[in-house]
Design a protein around this nucleic acid. Structure first.
Lengths: 199, 199
DNA sequence: CCTACCGATCGGTAGG
DNA sequence: CCTACCGATCGGTAGG
């Protein structure tokens, strides 16, 4: 018998993957446990060997797709000689994969609407204090280049850049002629950068 | 018998108001027609005298709360001698009412997740071409003050400012100490303005 | 991990 | 606009 990984059994992974896909496609209440079972290739009752109920399955999906796992490597891999180049590179990486952006955003929407944000404090406490401290130190090192904006607002605007681009993408991108979308990412990053940098 | 207004009968308004509240609180599939009937003070069957089914009721709610109705007076009432003052005033008005922002945003989330954005083209076509043309003319008149950014990106970033502020508000505002939230709106508008203006 | 089942609730309708 | 009902489907479980 193969040793189980820390990620759980293959069946558990199938359930999580099927649930993730269905939740993001149809919402929480729009997805039934029977659909998830079928997607995972098992019978309905089988799910309950791995998760006690539907909500705990959603929470497991949410935690498995915590933006921290996607964002940390992005920020660490980002390069750039100057502050400006570093931020631009990080922003481009952050918005580079459309499918990832849409999936994460929809999962968050479900949490905000169908769970009234109940699970957010848990997600928030996992990473925000750490991020705040690191960005704060980084901003302090580069304060000569930055306009006088509190660290929290720098972070909010950077996170906001993600949603700004992703949601307007969802709202209008499919409906705009292609030439109007060219370089839209670059322009929006550009606005953010000129907004926070001196000179 | 009193004449019916163009907004529909009182009962129809009660149904719309109850549906709006419940949808934004619990999502589409998380809200039952029975809950809506109770909220509107009538029996389940009574709803079907006004709306043929649940989805058409949701669509009616969505159209009744089209951001166009909220946004147009905001933009027309905005004041300011200079371009900068006008945009700042409009932005402040746009984000001034937290309840309006949350309700509209949640309704949009429901549409994006539970209806896969099916109804968006309809909403979009109602206003975007008009907005694009007006902002384009306005930007042309003030091009000496604006950095060279396509009109579409100016609009996307301005709409994005709304979501940037509102979603980070939903995500972190409830969990931050008060002094970290002070003037957050002003800073985010400030970043946008410095991002699009010359000098 | 599956089969077969539970009570509850769903959207919608007939008839008045 | 209400009462009483329809078939379908829901989350969850007992028992193997």
């Amino acid at each position: 018998m193969a040793a189980e990984t820390s990620k759980g059994t293959a069946t558990q992974q199938n359930i999580l993957a099927g649930a993730h896909q269905l939740f993001t496609e149809r919402g929480y209440h729009g997805t039934s446990m029977r659909m998830i079972a079928q997607q995972a290739g098992i019978a309905l009752g089988g799910i309950y060997n791995h998760f006690p109920n539907k909500e705990s399955l959603f929470l497991a999906v949410l935690l498995a797709h915590h933006p921290y796992y996607a964002l940390l490597p992005v920020l660490q891999a980002s390069q750039g000689e100057t502050l400006e180049e570093y931020i631009r590179d990080a922003a481009i990486r952050m918005v580079s994969d459309p499918q990832d952006r849409f999936e994460f955003t929809k999962l968050l929407f479900i949490e905000l609407v169908e769970f009234r944000g109940q699970h957010l404090p848990q997600l928030f406490q996992m990473v925000f204090p750490d991020v705040l401290e690191k960005v704060g130190r980084y901003a302090q090192d580069h304060r000569a280049r930055l306009r006088p904006i509190p660290t929290v607002s720098l972070i909010r605007a950077f996170i906001g850049l993600f949603f700004s681009y992703t949601i307007t993408d969802m709202l209008i991108a499919r409906q705009l002629p292609a030439e109007m979308k060219d370089n839209a990412v670059d322009h929006m990053i550009d606005i953010y950068l000129h907004g926070i940098l001196k000179e």
